[in-house]
Design a binder for these strands. Structure first.
Lengths: 350, 350
DNA sequence: TTTTATTATGCAATCGTTTGCGTCTAAGGA
DNA sequence: TCCTTAGACGCAAACGATTGCATAATAAAA
């Protein structure tokens, strides 16, 4: 247990130079002779020197740490985004502090507080479901700390955002169902106050209109779609029952959540309704499980990894441009992954 | 954009006292009068003062940041462990830097390097699959930085560890299958050099012996079980085919991976083999998907969240006891979650 | 009133690096 | 020989908070 940490001064002493010289030598400063540089470098790793980032951070006013706030790490979506963010940011020499809000506003606030204290160089976040007051984010902005929002964003904050094109996601899902011959398409949506669900709904409606299909409000069912997966599954079951207890039944369901769709599959199977022949299904998010269930679920993929990478890139761009930043939104195009839950017509191999 | 950060000196000036006084007042030092304390505190939040952790860290030699290294965040197991770690550590005022090794030794090493540079107060890690040289971990130990290992550990490093009782996991899985009337039980195992798979295998064998069942080496199949899920699924399919192309076929499979078991389910269904009547299945990890597939998969749950919490607690214990630390291992008992993939006998509701 | 506690602060060094500016030496130019 | 000039470093002041050791100011004791 060597408690003695060695500093540039230690290596300076050994070499009979000053700390400044060592510092410069280590950074390959042009005004230091090659001989000294070499000597310094050698002595450095002979002594097993580890630079102290904290001192540098204090001196430079830059910690090289950036904070990431997500609702929870154990939802595949966020885990995957994190992965993307990490990849590009680490390459630029940044470290990530990841904190989770659990979708609770107060936790989100205290996380921000903590990040600010650590002097992060910036924050990349996805807003908690519960958050309605955005003053803690405003504080970040007012302190001049770069902020990028992804997925769950708030346009009014005037910051750079990276989002999925949820409207488009709704459109392609429904278009696909229509192509498969469905005409009576129901929709499971999440809580109406959330942007993403409004957008998907809008896409759903527009796609129907586009094809001159009627919009049946009874077929638009709302439930909590961001919760523990078991709950969402249950919600899906509940909504499905509700959907089929009334007179006219749909021949397709576009669900804004994969898990709700899986719940629907369970119920439909229990009711001996054939999938996709009697009812076709499309989910949203392209969760891993979608390919394991029976039948495999068609789903809208959000390119989560790329979303993370993009968020990181937008962030880098923001901190590297010292100009006035006019906020901009980056929108990712979703992609429909077609599986048997919606394949009524045999796929024609072109 | 207020770039001007306000420090204790700023608030000291306003109040005509010195920085020392402000510092003490903020920390509620007994030798500061209540009047000044109050004045300081008021001025502090009037000016919207944010303490600078970095300065404190430098001065105290303690960053209040602890590093976590995992293979990847987008595997449910690790995401869940992280969640547990975060929960208890954040409560103690620590921040987490999470970095991923992608199961690559060199990345693991550079991650450690980075963490050390940031002066983390400790490291909690799960070793990369590929790692065979442990010198970078030794470096951590030699520098006196507390280290706790979980799940994928190395006993020879002599550090505190938190692991799942894989042996026991193997035992309860096989015992259950035997109880269900299976006598010809096959096993899918991961790469033999990994501790966890050896242990599960040992449990498998011991359980068989215990019940006087023969061990058929042809039924012990090895494959890469930690990889992208799709690959593992494919591995499961391959192993299953291999298993059933020979003469005598088993009546149960205990798979060390849920996804391999799912691959098996797919193949068995394709071969029109009844699950669980002809072949019963048990997986390992209790991944979310296990409950969504058809039939739902019985699996060994590893209590991942608790593993994270425990790892964090062990860590706290270690840094708070200034005594000599004799390393100790903490072992979590796994639990079998029984679902229909293995339920041959109707469950008797007691 | 002088001395001794007590209380409430101030001083200044320190943590490890970085960096603007000054200094010294030796080589080259006039 | 004197002056420039470039090259190679050293000096010392930051960065913001903490803390052991004074030191004032007031109160209590003598």
């Amino acid at each position: 247990m060597k408690k003695k940490k060695i500093t540039i001064r230690d290596i300076a002493d050994k070499l009979d130079v000053t700390a400044s010289t060592v510092s410069r030598a280590l950074k390959n400063h042009p005004r230091i002779s090659d001989t000294t540089k070499k000597a310094v470098v050698e002595m450095a790793d002979k002594l097993n020197y580890q630079p102290n980032n904290i001192a540098t951070a204090l001196r430079k006013g830059k910690s090289n740490i950036i904070g990431v706030i997500i609702p929870t790490s154990d939802r595949r979506f966020f885990a995957s985004v994190i992965k993307g963010i990490e990849q590009v940011l680490r390459e630029e020499g940044y470290n990530l502090i990841i904190s989770q809000s659990d979708d609770i506003a107060s936790k989100e606030e205290s996380n921000i507080e903590a990040l600010l204290r650590v002097q992060v160089d910036g924050i990349i976040a996805s807003i908690a479901r519960e958050t309605t007051d955005y003053s803690h984010f405003e504080r970040v902005i007012n302190r001049g700390v770069p902020l990028v929002l992804f997925d769950r964003v708030n346009e009014e904050l005037g910051v750079n955002t990276v989002v999925n094109d949820d409207y488009q996601g709704g459109v392609i899902a429904v278009n696909h169902l229509i192509e498969q011959g469905c005409t009576k398409i129901a929709h499971f949506m999440g809580k109406r106050h959330l942007n993403i669900y409004q957008e998907r709904l809008r896409g759903y409606k527009d796609a129907l209109k586009e094809h001159n299909l009627p919009i049946n409000e009874d077929w638009i069912l709302e439930g909590d779609l961001i919760d523990e997966t078991e709950q969402v599954l249950e919600t899906g079951r509940r909504l499905t029952h509700k959907l089929f207890e009334n007179g006219e039944v749909p021949d397709a369901i576009f669900s804004s959540s994969d898990f709700a769709a899986m719940g629907a599959i369970q119920v439909l199977k229990e009711m001996n309704i054939k999938i996709p022949d009697e009812v076709a299904l499309v989910g949203f998010s392209n969760d891993l499980s979608t390919s394991f269930i029976d039948p495999p679920l068609t789903s809208v993929d959000q390119h989560t990894r790329q979303m993370g990478e993009l968020a990181a890139q937008v962030f880098l761009q923001q901190i590297n441009s010292d100009s006035k930043n006019i906020p901009f939104d980056t929108t990712l195009k979703p992609e429909l992954i077609i599986r048997s839950s919606s394949m009524r017509k045999e796929k024609v191999n072109a």
